[in-house]
């Protein structure tokens, strides 16, 4: 049997196995941010990780490049394939800093406002990143790659950029080291629908060049159209992973169904119940405790169709509206 979330055919660039992340609080409690996650990021595809705010999505991105706070603890494996395979969780920080971050795994951060040095021009920031990371692509070409005109943008300072342009510059920075994996944390946050669709389109274009793209977002309207695969997370667990069309239109688990139904275009009905705090998750299924409904108690992902995994022993919940 192949792993949950593995794609037959396409080789996974990043293989996440049994990943759990907990963050320590000063009062001794633990925030259960990610629990027992199995997922593959295949080359050349966009994987959308959707879920409510506070379900642990962003912590996952930090865990994948070893940028967790010092109070965190992890278990499991994150295998990075390539000429020099590596377990990202076991690698020491030196290796991650000098050989992985930016070079093999790029991160597009959430906040465009604070992620760019305000006193340097876009061109200077990019050239510096290219030099530091030993990238082969010059700054001007990187800007063209994110559909910006180098002549117009390179001399601008970050505060002179519009929100959409700033997001694209962040993407160009993440591409400076030509990484195999792109992790994008809410890349469309704060953008209006046109700009959000634009950024999502750029990420899809990056996937087509052979990169594995993980798109962490609750902006489903903007990101779903470009996603090849969709994973849905609730209360620290991924409950369904599969081909985008199946998970978006015919989800097996009732949480994705409830999440899609909360979109303005699909009924605008809130997901029932409040998510429990991540410090205080039950040992059994937090979602079915919150929303009611039967749960098989099997919290690991089980295959239900080729390339389609579901937890909680769910069957298809019907066709989405």
């Amino acid at each position: 049997m192949t792993a949950a979330g593995a794609v037959p055919g396409a080789p996974p660039v990043l293989s996440i196995r049994g990943l759990s992340v907990q963050l320590g609080l000063l009062d001794g409690r633990w925030v259960h941010a990610v629990s027992d996650l199995d997922m593959d990021l295949p080359a050349g595809t966009v994987t959308l990780l959707a879920g409510e705010s506070g379900c642990g999505k962003s912590v996952l991105a930090s865990a994948l490049i070893g940028l967790l706070p010092p109070t965190a603890r992890v278990r499991g494996q994150v295998g990075l394939d390539g000429p020099d395979p590596l377990d990202l969780l076991a690698a020491d920080d030196d290796v991650l800093a000098t050989r992985v971050r930016g070079r093999r795994v790029g991160l597009v951060p959430q906040s465009a406002g604070t992620a760019l040095t305000p006193t340097r021009t876009v061109g200077a920031l990019l050239s510096e990143a290219v030099t530091t990371l030993g990238g082969a692509v010059p700054a001007a070409d990187l800007l063209r790659e994110v559909w910006l005109d180098p002549d117009g943008v390179a001399d601008l300072y970050p505060h002179q950029l519009s929100g959409g342009m700033a997001h694209r510059v962040l993407l160009a920075l993440a591409l400076a080291g030509q990484p195999d994996v792109l992790l994008c944390d809410e890349p469309t946050a704060g953008l209006d629908p046109e700009n959000a669709a634009h950024v999502a389109g750029l990420l899809a274009a990056q996937a087509r060049t052979g990169r594995a793209v993980l798109l962490i977002s609750h902006d489903i309207a903007a990101c779903a159209p470009v996603a090849d695969r969709v994973a849905v997370m609730v209360s620290s667990r991924v409950v369904e992973v599969g081909p985008a069309t199946d998970v978006l239109d015919r989800p097996w688990h009732d949480y994705p169904q409830a999440l899609w139904n909360s979109l303005p275009e699909r009924g605008f009905r809130p997901v029932p119940g409040d998510p429990p705090p991540l410090t205080d998750l039950p040992d059994d299924c937090a979602w079915h405790r919150r929303a009611g409904g039967a749960c098989s108690g099997v919290l690991t992902l089980e295959p239900v169709a080729p390339d389609h995994w579901v937890s909680c022993g769910r069957g298809p919940v019907g066709v989405g509206c």
């Binding site: 979109l263 303005p264 809130p270």
Partner: peptide, 14 residues
């Protein structure tokens, strides 16, 4: 609701 996820947006809207 600009900073909120779809479910929370729907709750606030309701």
């Amino acid at each position: 609701t600009a900073m909120l996820d779809p479910s929370t947006t729907a709750t606030i809207a309701q």
